[in-house]
Structure formats: structure tokens, C-alpha cells
Simulated assay, not measured.
Amino acid sequence: MTQSQATNTASRPAGGRLAGQRVVVIGGTRGIGFAAAQAVAAEGGEVVVASRNPGHVARAVAALGPSASGHALDIGDRQAAAAFFAQVGPFDHLVTTAAQVLRKSLLEADLDEARASFEGKFWGQVHAARFGAPLIRPGGSIVLVSGISSRRGLGGMAFPSAINGAIEALSRSLAVSLAPIRVNTVSPGYIDTPGHGGAERSAVLKKVAAAIPAGRPGRPEEVAQAIVYLITNPFSTGTVLDIDGGHLAS
């Protein structure tokens, strides 16, 4: 937890906005997902994290504290997703941040890899909503995660653009069909996470910083703040909330 997070946590009323509530975070062991899990825990919520890597799950649960639990899960596997939610049982809010996307142009991409991207990010969120929604208690919500490539043409991002656009369309439809469960989407811009790793990471982030009004890439905890807002605001549903440092405006 950063110093600013600790200060904010200390200034909140005892118990927090999510005290007594149970939140499932898919992809909750690294990057945006882990930051979301931390933010939920800071608000007094019980956190259940899930991701593919058992080692990452164990480390996340240890860091989140005694109110946290975790499961190894490939959310792109429909049967595994159904079994996971059956084991978890009733809860209050669902956050899905797991993502594996292919950053290659249409003509360069391996189409099997492109299909796997859809399986992981789009169908993974479909599975989470399909099997999680029946277990969500009254007053609960679902927060999906897309990305600004859904509405901004970016080179080499044909498949993430299509996946993110599909997630946002899905979210708006589910806000109607699953009501009174609230369904929203957070759409991050360039966020400084391990997901932007590799030799080109520094160059990409520096280029983004120079091009957007915020003057820097985002941080996972800033996206997590938006996720908690959507969880706790009872009048927010069918919303796509951009956390992009002004990228779409520039």
C-alpha cells in the first residue's frame, strides 16, 4: 500500500464502505486486479481473488490479509468457471480484470492466438457474468474491464479493439437483462503494469506520457478507485467509465 493509500484508509470511517460485503476479483493477483483487491480490502470488504497461477494466488492472499481467500482458475475454461462459482457460493460484487490480448496487426497476427485472446478476455468475462450473476446478493454489481482501444484506432491493436468493444456492448446489455444487478465497465488507457512488459515498455510509456493531457501513464490504484466507485454507487449501471488520463480527448 502506498503512503497516500494508507492516509486515505486511515481517514475513512471505521469499517469502510464495503464492510460486511464479499467481492470476487477475477485476475485479482497482479496489476489492476490486485490493486482492485487491495482497494476492496481497504474498504473493509472480504476479497476472493482468482487467477491462473497458483503461486500468484498464494502471494496475493498473503498480502491482502486474513479476510482474503484465493483460487487458481482459468476463467476462459467454461467448466472451470462454473465449478469455481459453485465453490465460492453467494457474494455481493464481481470484478473481472483477467486479460490476455494479442497486440499485433490483422495481417501479422496468428489467428489461433487471436482466437485465444477472445477466449481469455471476452469469453472469460462472459463466463464470469454467466456463472457469477445467479450468486450475487440483492444490491450487488458486476464490473467488467475493457480498454480505450474500443473507441480509438491504435496500430497493432485490431484484436484488443474488437474484444474491448464487445465487452462494452455486453455490459450495456447485461445492465438491462440482469437488473437489478448493476453492470458497469471500466475502460483504462495506458496503465503502468507488468502487462506492458518487454523491451519496448519504457519507450511506449514515455511516448504515451508525451501525448496525453495527464502527462504520464496511469497507475493500477487509479483504476482500482474507479472500480470501487462503480461497486459502491447504487445509481451507476450501464456505464463505461474511462480512466485514460485524457487519451480519448487528445
Score class of each variant (00 low, 15 high):
142 I>H: 02
153 G>N: 11
154 L>K: 14
152 R>F: 06
166 A>M: 11
157 M>Y: 15
133 A>F: 01
151 R>C: 12
158 A>Y: 08
119 E>T: 15
125 Q>H: 07
137 R>A: 14
132 G>S: 05
119 E>P: 11
146 S>E: 04
166 A>L: 12
150 S>P: 03
152 R>G: 00
143 V>G: 03
156 G>C: 14
131 F>Q: 00
119 E>M: 14
143 V>L: 02
123 W>L: 12
127 H>D: 03
166 A>P: 09
131 F>P: 02
129 A>Y: 02
163 I>R: 03
135 L>Y: 14
134 P>I: 11
120 G>A: 15
140 G>S: 11
163 I>C: 08
141 S>M: 06
132 G>E: 02
149 S>L: 09
162 A>C: 11
158 A>I: 14
120 G>S: 15
129 A>S: 09
140 G>K: 11
143 V>N: 02
139 G>H: 03
125 Q>E: 06
122 F>L: 14
143 V>Q: 00
152 R>W: 02
161 S>G: 15
149 S>W: 10
144 L>I: 01
159 F>H: 14
124 G>E: 01
147 G>A: 15
145 V>I: 12
127 H>Q: 12
128 A>T: 06
149 S>P: 05
136 I>V: 06
140 G>T: 06
158 A>E: 02
133 A>T: 11
134 P>C: 09
136 I>C: 00
126 V>G: 01
132 G>A: 08
166 A>V: 13
134 P>T: 11
162 A>G: 12
160 P>H: 08
147 G>P: 12
161 S>N: 05
146 S>L: 14
139 G>T: 04
144 L>R: 00
143 V>C: 05
136 I>S: 01
151 R>Q: 13
164 N>F: 02
120 G>K: 07
143 V>H: 03
136 I>D: 00
125 Q>G: 06
150 S>V: 10
128 A>K: 06
145 V>R: 08
132 G>W: 06
144 L>P: 01
158 A>R: 07
155 G>C: 10
163 I>E: 00
